[in-house]
Design a protein around this nucleic acid. Sequence first.
RNA 1: GGUUGUGUAGCUCAAUUGGAUAGAGCAUCUGACUACGAAUCAGAAGGUUUAAGGUUCGACUCCUUACACGACCA
Length: 639
Amino acid sequence: MPHHLGQAASCKLASPAASSYALRAKLRPALRLPRTSPYLCPVQQLENSLKTALQAAAQAVFGVEIPAASLTLQPTRKEFAGSFTLVTFALTKVLGKGPEQIGQALGEWLQANEPRVSGFNVLKGFLNLEIADAEWLAVFEQLRAQPATAPVATDGPQNVVVEYSSPNTNKPLHLGHLRNNFLGYSVAEILKATGATVTKANLVNDRGIHICKSMIAYQHFGQGETPQSAGLKGDHLAGKYYVLFEKHYREEIRQLEAEGVTNEVAKKSAPLMAEAQQMLQAWEAGDPEVKALWSLMNGWVYEGFDATYKNIGVDFDKFYYESGTYLLGKERVEEGLEKGVFFKKENGSVWVDLQAEGLDEKLLLRADGTSVYITQDLGTAELKYQDFGYDSSIYVIADEQNYHMQVLQATLKKLGKPYADAIHHLSYGMVDLPSGKMKSREGTVVDADELVRDVVAAAKAATLEKGKTEGLSDAELEELYHMLGLGALKYYLLKVDPKKRMLFNPEESVNLEGDTGPFIQYSHSRTAAVRRKAVELGVDETADWASVTELHSADSELIQELARYPAVVAEAAKNLSPAVVAQYAYDLARNYNRFYAKVPIFAETDLAKRNLRLALSARTGEQLKAAFGLLGIQVPERM
RNA sequence: GGUUGUGUAGCUCAAUUGGAUAGAGCAUCUGACUACGAAUCAGAAGGUUUAAGGUUCGACUCCUUACACGACCA
């Protein structure tokens, strides 16, 4: 490993040399391991027991056995009475009756024989079931038996590598990288919440023509400038020279064209580009002077990245560097030739034919023996498997590389790699601006560091305006502004389905009302205020509510929302979608605020009810914190 | 040209994977702070789900065709 990215680079999962792939393959013939049975959340358990009761009802009333799979139970829509709805259309054929008739008959039987069902109503083909308050109290008890952060067992993968961020070292991070970083971090945390072992990996693209461009420009115009002397973060300094290269390079092309050279030839023959190409060759040949400059500039960049990563709150367990892996793929190419799944053309270049897979012929190694992108990807995939023996390897990469990732997976399959099926491309859409696409050449790229500064400043201004932070120290205030600014930004980027292209509106991103991160952070700080007040009033925290028999609808609705959290985590993990968690956090916060406005807590005269509501409020706070933790967003005690 | 993704209120996003009258937020309008925190809550208005067919008890969701925008591959 040629470099270290500061503290973030602590590779606690560094692989022991003994863990060879061959050994692991023997130990692990199948990628999917047998699992403990998935954990069902209280709501799912209730649904299952309702299904069993419905089967019994069908048996008793119609004398027909219904498979559980044909019973579709869903949450009742808000405008109707009830909590669960059975769609009876699907049963008309099996039971030989009309949908209303079925609903009525099943409902009557349940109300008479199933104590959990306190009432029902039928509308067309929908049977709405009302659940007894005692059952909701039991559900809440069951939920509370586990802490909000308890792992949710699923039948998903248990040993996962999530590769994300993977920046180029010639310029600082921008808005697009932020979506990538937030997604990668969050998906890793969500998978951890299912009990999986997760390794966050970063494959740093530290070699190639792009960094040579920065280096050439630095040699020409740098005059020994350093991040310290320039007062610039290292990544921004490298970016400055990359821009300078492009500027002078364009100028050279223009001059050549003025002399009558065609654009195509000018691009290739411009002196600066020739120098950059030469430098790349010198680098590959190990030229000590070039390597020294490369180390120096990359070192600056890593310091800059390290600061940004720290600032935005993402981390990594393992760094890979292309300078260390780019040659590895050639072995895989040899392997493919030996196995006869790759072929050589007359000029010596190596290809794989993927037409049977609906793809194309793909170049794997150039005629001169130099590698292309996919060559190193083949090598890195193998290396990652040697290091971690994963049963799932997730690549967080923008959807412009969909084809590339398909080719990678298909090629690994051709090679007969057991881990080929474990590869998963988490493909996310690009981020657009109101002005259109981000284009680095047109200078419309939103810089990550600058953006973070802006959102934090906006959070600060709004917080000062509210003026509710009396008693916080200056340091605590700075922390709060940062928490709120980043909360707004992360939530904004994560609430959208990853696979969809999205629009970044700077004004909306710093908004803190409605469907925003700060709204949910505010809701959490409300639960914290309730807790403080309870302590202030000397309410016994262990006080129970055993005598409560009747609930307000706001109570039971909040319980129902709270109790589906484990199912939400499982779904988010299955779909690799932080948006599912974000949506849930918003729903829970809204539910809580409604509860807060509708029913009294401290003014409640029935002390058992008051105790229940305190417990509901506390649990809401824990789950908002847990859910936001999965998104990489912190929540404040007051704001 | 080939492959592929997307298209939902003025704008940004949802829709339990085929279920009820398609839901939220922003913006607009109206109400609620000497209530436990108004970064909140309650309400109004806003839709031929790009278009046309098809599949069935039922379609934003599945199929076909067209259109628009994007990405990738020559």
